[in-house]
Nucleic acid binder design. Structure first.
Length: 613
DNA sequence: GCAAGGTC
């Protein structure tokens, strides 16, 4: 009997379907001489410190450097503390029984570092010795699965990938556990002050933005606006310069030849320029972009959106949610017309879906090379009934985005009019010529600046118009806004893009900080520690958060670069470099940061209070 | 009591 193990039930079901296996059992599917089983993500984790004999939180234990790491069953929190997750224990027992029967194992966990780790941890924990082969596919269509099975790889081909994954895991444990205990202990052990490779740079981003925003000194500047009128249709034109003083602006204002000043037609049209601009449709959603949109449209937190999306996925209404790709391959694209057709009677999108059926679809989101372990989020074509309001909102964002992504470009006409009245003034306006993809949601165009006119009257060069109004506008420079969940998610994705070191920047280019699957929980962790709070839509540090930031802000652990350095080394390990050197460096760093943090500490008040304004 | 990673 051959046993196929997938990372999650949905993938095991897909593969079983391709084989025509239909015999559903508790925790696996059987048929055609194969057995298809699954994990639920990581079933095993590196064991907690006490399992190596480091009892309690104690300076004498630090740094904790286990000579050999142990694995333990994933835990859940109960009223009696942390216990083995019973559903995980049960599934592990099922896997063990199947592995015991197996002649060969086929590893079908996701094609990536963590997918490899998920399987290997199970395999080694169960002390399994059976031979295994690796299925390596990046698309789960029937054809891709069949092709993958014709091309199974020797399991040992991925030993170095496992090494890099295990190093990642151990390094996070060593640095995180030790730094957390060290800072908590040196601060009086009154609260858990956690630190980690991802959470601490994230906290640092929030704090430094908060301080920058709070300490920002606004500068006042002045502009002059005039209002020419074309046969009853007035529009606004602005001085192209910003003036530092009111006097400078006043001088410009005084020269304006307005009606009140005795000029019946003192606005001379110097030029009119109209340029079309094509705006391509947005890409399909990945988890992060959907979380950002749901935060902007509905105020959902990243965690809420992930939860709602997971429910939709479990109801088979949308494809796999924790994806980091905004593209689909040609195989999935082939099914898109059928998918679009399903929305032709939709109350909001029906008209656009019907329109799209007869159109050539835009292929901007189709690129197999940019599909990583999972493709972009799509509706499955399964039609929902009776969704809750929030589920419906998320479902509509997924399906609406699909219609947008395959729609035509939006064509805008951008008009610029230069008017002379004393000095020169410019008026600009944007008119949508052909809505294209923008017809799906019909949202107001967020790019538009507040000085812009929606539509400008038709005027000709050489015309002289009455200027019916003029004014000095007093404005202030604005600081960068505080982070909210949407902008923070974006910031985490792009973290590392400004690193000076080219190699580190390259190592982080596809990852940023955290992963799509973990970013929501990183934000929740910072809130749980009372490092940050939600204030309206913003994420604002507390006193505790700022204290922690002040202690660590110049340490490596607070920099996104740390992830870059690790990623670079982990990639070298994947391509065959020795793990010993990296492990020794991590241990040295762990000793170092532990010692530093034991020295400093946060003297008083660790109970959170919202930071003052 | 603690990391980051994955998922029901």
């Amino acid at each position: 009997m051959k046993v196929i193990i997938a990372e999650k039930p949905s993938v095991a079901r897909e593969i079983a379907k391709v084989f025509g296996a239909v015999n559903k059992k508790d925790g696996y599917i059987e048929g055609k001489g194969y057995t298809f089983t699954w994990a639920f993500g990581h079933l095993l984790q590196l064991a907690a410190p006490q399992e190596y004999g480091y009892y309690g939180w104690n300076v004498q234990n630090l740094p904790m450097l286990p000579t050999k790491f142990k694995l333990s069953i994933r835990k859940v929190k109960t009223k009696d503390g942390m216990v083995d997750d019973p559903s995980v224990k049960k599934q592990l027992d099922i896997i063990k029984a199947l592995f015991d029967e197996a002649t060969e194992i086929i590893v079908a966990t996701d094609a990536g570092r963590e997918g490899e780790l998920i399987f290997r941890y199970i395999y080694y924990y169960l002390k399994c010795k059976k031979p295994f082969k690796r299925l390596w596919i990046s698309s789960q269509t029937d054809e891709a699965i069949k092709e993958g099975f014709r091309n199974l790889k020797p399991g040992s081909d991925y030993d170095t990938l496992f090494n890099s994954a295990h190093c990642r895991s151990q390094s996070d444990w060593l640095v995180g556990m030790n730094a957390t205990q060290a800072l908590s202990l040196s601060s009086g052990n009154r609260a858990v002050l956690s630190l980690g490779r991802v959470q601490t740079p994230t906290l640092a981003m929030i704090c430094s933005r908060y301080l920058e925003n709070k300490n920002f000194v606004p500068q006042t500047y002045y502009q002059v606006a005039i209002q020419p009128d074309k046969e009853g249709q007035a529009f606004r034109a602005i001085s192209p310069e910003n003036y530092k003083t009111r006097e400078e602006a006043q001088a410009v204002l005084d020269k304006v030849e307005d009606v009140a000043g005795g000029f019946p037609a003192g606005g001379h049209i110097l030029s009119v320029e109209a340029k079309p601009r094509k705006e391509p449709p947005p890409l399909l959603h990945d988890l992060s972009s959907l979380q950002q949109e749901a935060n902007k449209r509905k105020g959902f937190t990243a965690d809420q959106t992930l939860g709602l999306l997971q429910n939709l996925y479990e109801s088979k209404l949308v494809t796999y949610p924790r994806t980091g790709s905004r593209y689909i391959g040609d195989d999935v694209f082939a099914g898109v017309p059928v998918l679009i057709e399903k929305f032709k009677d939709h109350p909001d999108f029906g008209k656009q879906a019907t329109l799209l059926i007869d159109q050539k679809l835009n292929k901007r989101s189709v690129n197999a090379k940019k599909v990583t372990d999972h493709h972009a989020i799509l509706p499955t074509g399964e039609m929902p009934n009776q969704l809750s309001k929030d589920h419906q909102a998320i479902y509509d964002m997924v399906s609406g985005r699909m219609l947008e992504a395959f729609h035509q470009e939006c064509i805008k006409e951008i008009t610029k009019i230069v008017v002379q009245s004393g000095d020169k003034f410019t008026a600009s306006g944007t008119v949508i010529g052909s809505a294209g993809w923008r017809a799906v949601f019909n949202d107001p165009d967020e790019e538009k600046k507040d000085e812009e006119n929606a539509a400008l009257p038709k005027v000709q060069q050489g015309e002289n118009l009455p200027v019916i109004n003029k004014a000095i506008l007093e404005k202030q420079t604005k600081p960068k806004p505080l982070y909210n969940e949407a902008s923070l998610l974006k910031g985490l994705e792009t973290a590392g893009k400004e690193i000076d070191d080219e190699e580190l920047r390259y190592a982080m280019k596809d990852s940023g900080l955290g992963t799509p699957a973990t970013r929501a929980s990183i934000i929740e962790t910072l809130i749980k520690r009372t490092y940050i709070i939600r204030e309206k839509k913003n994420l604002v540090p507390t006193e505790t958060g700022l204290n922690v930031y002040n202690v660590v802000k110049d340490q490596k652990i607070a920099q996104a670069e740390l992830t870059g350095t690790w990623e670079k080394r982990l990639e070298e390990i994947r391509s065959g470099a020795s793990i010993n050197e990296f492990q020794e460096e991590i241990k040295a760093y762990t000793r170092n940061i532990t010692q530093e943090l034991l020295k400093v500490g946060i003297p008083k008040k660790v109970i959170a209070e919202p930071a003052g304004n």
